[in-house]
């Protein structure tokens, strides 16, 4: 690493303070057209921790994940995963996209979707063998979907589809899991299953980062939270981060006092 200094939050800091955290974002700015979706965002996600990214609609939550994965090109900023550029460690990162981004009439079965998670290992030509299928079914059974392996993906309910997506991420065997609103529009049983699986991943040492929209469940699901609205409002343990000041700063007047009281207990 070359010697040098970088500015952050108006302070001068050493450029190597990003460490080897599973995910570290420094000074990230992403714009769509002229309007910044993210501005000078700072965030660090530590190993073995389950974190939520929280913020109102249009705060840049999904954009942050997209920028991390190279789906949008940032105007400026530095993103490192495990201390290296993300493109070098993509095999260690599993992504669960928003359900709405997929064509549900696509002719594919549940098991084919899960096998997609093994793309790197299968390569272009290696045939799919029985042990691949067995592993795919094992991933499905972790999310309670093993009996749906042969269904066309569009025949499933929203919650079931989301669980299949999670199974695909499991099949990849990653160390960092990025999930974009996995609980949006799913039933309570699915939410419970997904949370349980994520917690078991965390307990096994994986890092889990979830774009989350339900403030009421943040405290029970996650250890840390990142509050953003275009830029970082607060970051840290959930209990420290979710205060009425930070929530007001994040959501402005959009959060009623009654809601606030409920979230803060």
């Amino acid at each position: 690493m070359t010697l040098g200094l970088a500015a952050r939050d108006g302070r001068i800091v050493a450029p190597d303070d990003t460490t080897a955290a599973p995910l570290a974002v420094r000074g990230l700015t992403v714009t769509y057209g002229e309007k910044p979706a993210l501005f000078a965002l700072e965030a660090t996600f530590d190993a073995g921790v389950m974190s939520a990214i929280i913020g109102p609609n249009g705060a840049g939550k999904s954009t942050l994940l997209k920028a991390v994965l190279g789906m949008v090109t940032p105007v400026s900023g530095n993103i490192r995963a495990f201390g290296r550029p993300v493109s070098e460690v993509l095999s260690r990162i599993a992504y669960v996209p928003q359900r709405a981004t997929v064509d549900w009439d696509f002719p594919t079965r549940v098991i084919d979707v899960v096998l997609m998670g093994m793309a790197r290992e299968l390569g272009l030509l290696r045939p799919i063998r029985q042990d691949h299928r067995d592993r795919a079914v094992a991933c499905l059974s972790r999310v309670g979907m093993e009996h749906f392996a042969d269904r066309q993906i569009g025949q499933l309910s929203g919650g079931q589809q989301q669980r299949v997506f999670l199974a695909r991420a499991l099949a990849q065997g990653a160390e960092l899991y990025l999930l974009d609103e996995p609980f949006a529009g799913v039933d309570a049983a699915t939410e419970k299953t997904i949370v349980a699986v994520l917690k078991s991943l965390r307990d096994a040492g994986a890092t889990v980062v979830v774009v989350h929209h339900d403030l009421a469940t943040v405290a029970s699901y996650f250890e840390r939270a990142l509050l953003i609205n275009t830029t970082r409002i607060a970051e840290g343990p959930v209990a420290d981060v979710l205060t009425s000041e930070t929530l007001q700063a994040t959501y402005g007047g959009r959060l009623a006092q009654a809601q606030l009281a409920q979230i803060l207990g």
């Binding site: 992504y95 997929v102 696509f106 997609m116 695909r168």
Partner: peptide
């Protein structure tokens, strides 16, 4: 074709 976002995310 099925999931372009995921495809990009896998490199």
């Amino acid at each position: 074709a099925f999931d372009p976002g995921y495809a990009v995310a896998t490199g």
